[in-house]
Computed example of a mutant assay.
Amino acid sequence: MTKEIYDIAIVGAGIVGLAHALAGARRGKRVVVFDRDARANGASVRNFGFITVSGQEAGDCWEKARRSCMLWQEVARDAGIPILQCGMTVAARYREAEAVIDAFLASDMGAECRKLSRDAARDYVPALNGDVRCALYSPHEIRVESGTAIASIAAFLTARHGVTFRFAEAVRVVETGRLVTSRRVVEAEAIIVCPGDDTSTLFPDRIAAYGVTRCKLQMMRIEPASAVELKTAVMSDLGLARYRGYADLTEASALKARLDEERRDARKNGVHLIVTQSADGSLVVGDSHHYAATPDPFGSTAVDDLILAEFDRILDLPERRTTGNWIGTYASAEGRWRLTDTPEEGVRLVVVTAGCGASTSFAIGEETIADLYGANAGA
């Protein structure tokens, strides 16, 4: 068994692990990243590629999303990752949803956002349905193709920063200053474990103490019958009742009550609408939310139909067809959106426990490295 020495060893090559690798490499540290799969295959590549700021929970989450979006733009530029859409349009059909938009715009998080009439919103989303009352426009978001962006970030980290990647190599042991796989022993002054929704391999008792379970979601790819350009990502009233930055506002209570009554099935299945567009014109559409320690691996046509029904309420795209479906999972914990734990000296366990990993991870990586090495050391 070979022995190697690095400054930082990272377990997990999803977006959380990559974010820590970037932050460490920017400090001039020698970094190695391990992943049990031959390539990133979890939540980081099964999502919308939608880096969301507006609507994130007020405080730490929203602040991390703002910083991460700035870093995403830097990385996208340097790694040659196309930014396919900028901004977000949240279409509202209910008067209660309009009240939530007004309250959000009056908050600190509403800075630079605007309320648009339906006609004005059609400048960004021409296919908006006629019964949309108004829309919230946010300029803060960007969208990349997550299925290729994650691999591009890894390649960039290797080429620009000399980060070493060990794919298809599972880590068996992590302790202070030492990491063991089936092939090698690595000595490192810092080890950062980013396990995603794997709650049983490394430090399972530490993870269990935070009440972490898993969230299963359903997504699909839609092909419009005729060409349509969505200049921004699209959301709907259901998102205003689910995303904490909106849903925690006092004014959201009436919207949630109405949706619980009129859209009971959608609410019960955690359905809300996000629509993003790929370079080929197809649309990534989702999603739903079901929670279990071991979610079943099967998609539900009934749940897909609930998502598509919301799609059709917001977008007028007749004869659209579904060309692909998939299941995603991510770690989830009641009452918290992330955790950073210190199971041993020099070891950090970092998990995003909500569906905002892509939106917040770069800032979390900076925070972890600053905690390990000091706020200004090597900067």
Results as ranks from 00 to 15, higher is better:
Thr201Arg: 13
Gly211Ile: 00
Thr176Asp: 06
Asp296Leu: 05
Val271Ser: 12
Glu189Ile: 01
Ala168Arg: 15
Ser288Trp: 04
Glu175Ile: 06
Glu261Ala: 15
Lys268Phe: 13
Ala227Glu: 10
Ala247Arg: 09
Ser236Thr: 10
Tyr210Pro: 01
Ala254Thr: 14
Ile192Arg: 00
Asp197Leu: 09
Gln277Ser: 06
Thr181Glu: 11
Cys194Lys: 15
Asp287Tyr: 01
Val193Ile: 14
Arg206Lys: 09
Leu202Cys: 08
Glu175Thr: 13
Thr176Phe: 07
Gly177Gln: 03
Glu189Thr: 14
Tyr210Ser: 02
Tyr246Pro: 03
Glu251Val: 12
Ser282Trp: 01
Arg244Thr: 06
Val271Phe: 06
Lys231Gly: 07
Val275Met: 02
Ile191Arg: 06
Val212Thr: 10
Val303Gly: 01
Asp260Gln: 15
Thr294Gly: 08
Phe298Asn: 01
Gly196Thr: 04
Ala190Ile: 05
Ala266Met: 09
Gly177Pro: 05
Ser200Val: 13
Thr301Leu: 15
Glu169Trp: 11
Ser236Phe: 11
Leu202Trp: 04
Cys215His: 05
Val193Thr: 09
Gly281Pro: 00
Arg184Lys: 09
Val228Met: 10
Asp280Cys: 08
Asp296Tyr: 02
Leu240Asn: 04
Ala168Val: 07
Gly239Cys: 13
Gly270Met: 00
Ile222Asp: 03
Gly245Pro: 08
His290Thr: 12
Gly299Asn: 12
Val275Ala: 05
Leu306Met: 03
Val186Gly: 13
Gly211Pro: 01
Gly281Asp: 00
Val234Thr: 06
Ala188Cys: 13
Thr276Ala: 04
Arg242Thr: 15
Ala208Val: 05
Thr232Lys: 11
Ser253Trp: 02
Ile274Gln: 00
Cys194Arg: 12
Val193Glu: 07
Arg244Asn: 09
Arg244Asp: 08
Pro224Ile: 13
Ser300Tyr: 14
Arg206Asn: 01
Ala252Lys: 04
Val271Tyr: 08
Arg183Asp: 05
Ala252Ser: 15
Thr276His: 08
Asp205Thr: 01
Ser226Tyr: 11
Tyr243Thr: 01
Arg206Gly: 06
Tyr243Glu: 10
Ala208Cys: 07
Glu189Gly: 13
Ala208Trp: 00
Ala266Gln: 13
Asp304Gln: 14
Lys268Cys: 10
Val271Thr: 07
Ala190Ser: 13
Ser282Gly: 01
Glu229Lys: 15
Asp304Lys: 14
Phe165Asp: 02
Leu217Gly: 15
Ile191Asn: 14
Phe298Thr: 11
Ala168Gln: 10
Gln277Thr: 04
Gly245Val: 01
Gly299His: 06
His272Val: 02
Leu179Phe: 09
Glu251Ala: 12
Arg264Asp: 11
Ser200Phe: 12
Leu306Asp: 02
Leu238Tyr: 08
Leu217Ala: 09
